[in-house]
């Protein structure tokens, strides 16, 4: 009975020093052509309400502490999605001195979305994958079970 109260996931989007190509493609998902809100996903600015952290950029030295801080403020279960080539591996900024080179040098990453800039379709794919992981963790945390096959089919067909 209690497990039906799983709310729709809220996304926190943070830019750690990217060229903003992927950020704008992420914003474009909110617009009518791609419309992410039909998945029940909301772009939320408060880290204490967020479930999914969507990060772009190769993590510059100045922004590193703020990223760790945001992650620490997010309640469990939480999922980290790295959007774009520079967030995933650090390239094309491998020769830049002020970057760490990829989100996974700083935080544990659950989903990597490649592309420079990552296409909106790829970002949607990645977010859906991330949401599936988040739901598994949510159910496991709630009552130790996995989501049923019907719930998974419902999610996949949206």
């Amino acid at each position: 009975m209690g497990r039906s109260r799983v709310k729709s996931p809220w996304i926190l989007h943070f830019d750690t020093g990217s060229c903003n190509g992927c950020d704008i493609e992420t914003w474009a998902l909110l617009t009518p052509r791609y419309d992410l809100e039909r998945f029940g996903v909301l772009n939320e600015a408060n880290p204490k309400h967020a479930d999914v952290l969507l990060v772009t950029g190769p993590v510059t030295k100045k922004v590193e502490d703020r990223l760790r801080n945001l992650y620490a403020q997010m309640p469990e279960p939480r999922v980290v999605i790295a959007v774009g080539n520079c967030a995933s591996t650090g390239s094309p900024f491998d020769d830049c001195y002020n970057v760490n080179g990829g989100i996974d040098r700083v935080l544990p990453v659950d989903v990597y979305i490649p592309g420079c800039a990552a296409r909106p379709e790829a970002i949607i794919d990645g977010i859906v994958l991330g949401l599936r992981k988040w739901r598994e963790r949510k159910f496991a945390a709630h009552d130790g079970t996995q989501p049923s096959k019907e719930t998974e089919m419902q999610e996949a067909s949206r």
């Binding site: 190769p58 491998d94 830049c96």
Partner: peptide
């Protein structure tokens, strides 16, 4: 000669723990 991700990888420095 500031350090970059490429020079760190060449030196074989492991990923930072998180």
């Amino acid at each position: 000669t500031p350090e970059t991700p490429r020079t760190r990888a060449q030196k074989g420095v492991a990923n930072a723990d998180h």
